[in-house]
């Protein structure tokens, strides 16, 4: 075998991922993804943020050839993934939600054979596997069976495997779900490192902190539809508020408190009932906590807890859907 020859020339583009009107309807008229238009540029970390069941995994599934779209198009590196799945699979790496490591192979062999599946010579696969083991701090585990790895290590190995063949883009589906906080931070570091190397990454998550910390841009989706798109800063600025006050009271008083605070707190842009709280979005107000207490006092409502924070992606999501991301 000589040097790699490109027998097949797809269009060259700096847009790594593109979907147009991407739709998946499951039997029973369940519209998991509904007319999604996305564009992800080279080197971006792009996030799909939404609650469970929003259609994130289905979207990732369609982009990675595992789910066949009902309509619309999905392209990776300019390759239509439905029309040319084998060409597309060469340029994508996938880290699925569950541990799909090969239990019959060792840690090292998982990487080595992945390289071979993707056409590396034995020598290249060996060198690359060793390099990735070092990069992901798994070298001392190389000979162990994958069953012996902790959750965090298994996740790192799956990321290492997904990038072994240097894909144009890596898809990570809820990469830190179920990881302990320390492993989550370790994985964020790994993803940051890949980002600095110029790796294009698409990740789905329902953790807003994760989306905020990692993503260059993100799409907020719910019920399969795109609700908002932008950088985390743009999205947070779009709320128009600079302070978010979360107030707790007795469940019976929630509705009344929502009205009172929306009306009487100076600078309040809106107040929303998000059980079991009232969330007040405020702009340009001083000494906000006493103002909230005073307003509640005047209406004869007892407040049991108040917290103040800057707007977050959570705020954006609440504004868009009227519900909490954690629901």
């Amino acid at each position: 075998m000589g040097p790699a020859v490109r027998e097949w020339e797809p269009p060259v583009t700096d847009e790594v991922i593109r979907t147009e009107g991407l739709t998946k309807v499951y039997p029973g008229d369940i519209r998991a993804v509904d007319g999604l238009d996305l564009s992800v540029g080279r080197g971006e970390i792009f996030g799909l943020l939404g609650p469970n069941g929003a259609g994130k995994t289905t979207t990732a599934g369609m982009l990675t050839t595992r789910v066949v779209p009902t309509s619309g198009t999905a392209c990776v590196g300019g390759i239509d993934v439905v029309a040319h799945p084998v060409a597309a699979k060469q340029v994508i790496g996938v880290v699925p939600q569950t541990n799909t490591l090969d239990r019959s192979l060792s840690v090292y062999e998982n990487l080595y054979f992945h390289g071979r599946f993707f056409g590396m010579s034995a020598r290249t696969a060996k060198a690359q596997a060793q390099r990735r083991l070092e990069q992901f701090r798994l070298s001392d585990r190389a000979a162990q069976p994958v069953m012996a790895l902790s959750g965090g290590m298994a996740q790192r190995l799956m990321v290492a495997r997904a990038i072994m063949h240097r894909p144009a883009t890596v898809f990570l589906d809820e990469p830190t779900a179920g990881l302990d906080p320390q492993s989550r931070l370790a994985l964020w570091e790994v993803l940051g490192e890949l980002h600095r190397e110029g790796q294009t990454i698409l990740l789905t998550t329902h953790y807003m902190e994760e989306a905020d910390a990692l993503c260059d841009r993100l799409a907020i989706i719910d019920h399969g539809r795109l609700l908002a798109l932008g950088t985390p800063e743009e999205l947070k600025a779009s709320t128009g508020a600079d302070t978010i006050v979360t107030v707790q009271t007795r469940p019976d008083d929630l509705d009344r408190l929502t009205q009172v605070l929306g009306r009487e707190v100076p600078g309040a842009q809106q107040a929303l009932r998000v059980d079991p709280h009232v969330v007040v979005q405020v702009r340009g107000a001083d000494r906000i906590v006493p103002q909230v207490f005073a307003a509640a006092e005047r209406a004869g409502i007892d407040i049991t807890d108040v917290s103040v924070a800057e707007p977050s992606l959570e705020t954006v999501f609440i504004n868009l859907t009227g519900k909490d991301l954690r629901e």
Binding site: R6, W8, H165, A168, T200
Partner: peptide
């Protein structure tokens, strides 16, 4: 074979 250090592959290295 000459092991090439592969760069991120925006286009497939081989025909399907």
């Amino acid at each position: 074979t000459v092991p090439v250090e592969p760069g991120a592959e925006l286009v497939p290295r081989r025909s399907p």
